[in-house]
């Protein structure tokens, strides 16, 4: 069995993809989680609790538990999800198929036959560009066979896309 990564050793003889997500990808996921979920949740809670504490302290006894109940999952996501994503995230181009693993709660390992690949593209979002990362998207004739490999260092993304293209041509 594969050493050191219990999250990959469970599906029969399927091994994890070779290339793992790097520390830059982890920083990007962390930034994204705080920007999109953790930060806004904290802001809204602050905006609710601070005026309440200053002007309506009587309301705190019910407002504080409600806010905490809403804040807990958001903070939990921002704290735990990036690390979990980083553990799962990996990719590999083989002789006849491309293999990618992703997800934080639902873990998805997808293996796509190169013969069915129609299009390969490299995309970079504004936040990804800050971290020097890119997303490789693979389009096929079936939406259940399409692939998005996010958080790949830019130079590596270009070679990855090129390798998929040559694999398709071969």
């Amino acid at each position: 069995m594969v050493a050191g990564n219990p999250h990959h050793s469970q599906i029969g003889r399927l091994r994890p993809p070779r290339h793992r997500a790097g520390p830059r990808a982890r920083r990007w996921w962390t930034a994204r989680a705080w920007l999109a979920v953790g930060g806004p949740a904290l802001l809204v809670s602050g905006a609710l609790l601070a005026p309440s504490a200053l002007f309506f302290p009587g309301a705190l006894f019910w407002l504080a538990p409600l806010t905490a109940a809403a804040l807990a999952p958001a903070l939990g996501y921002a704290l735990l999800a990036p690390a979990r994503r980083c553990r799962t995230h990996a990719w590999e181009v083989g002789e006849s198929a491309v293999y990618a693993a992703s997800g934080w709660y639902w873990r998805r390992r997808r293996i796509v036959a190169l013969a069915g690949v129609r299009d390969v593209a490299v995309r970079r979002g504004p936040l990804q560009r800050l971290y020097g990362l890119a997303t490789v998207t693979v389009t096929t004739g079936s939406t259940a066979a399409d692939l998005r490999i996010a958080g790949v260092p830019e130079a590596e993304a270009r070679t990855l896309a090129e390798r998929i293209r040559t694999g398709v041509a071969a």
């Binding site: 029969g12 993809p17 198929a97 293996i111 796509v112 036959a113």
Partner: peptide, 21 residues
Amino acid sequence: AAEAAEFAEYAAPGIVREFLI
């Protein structure tokens, strides 16, 4: 889970083969 990878290889050979231990 123990049978899944092998079933995939048996049902549509060649896709997962090179990623099996």
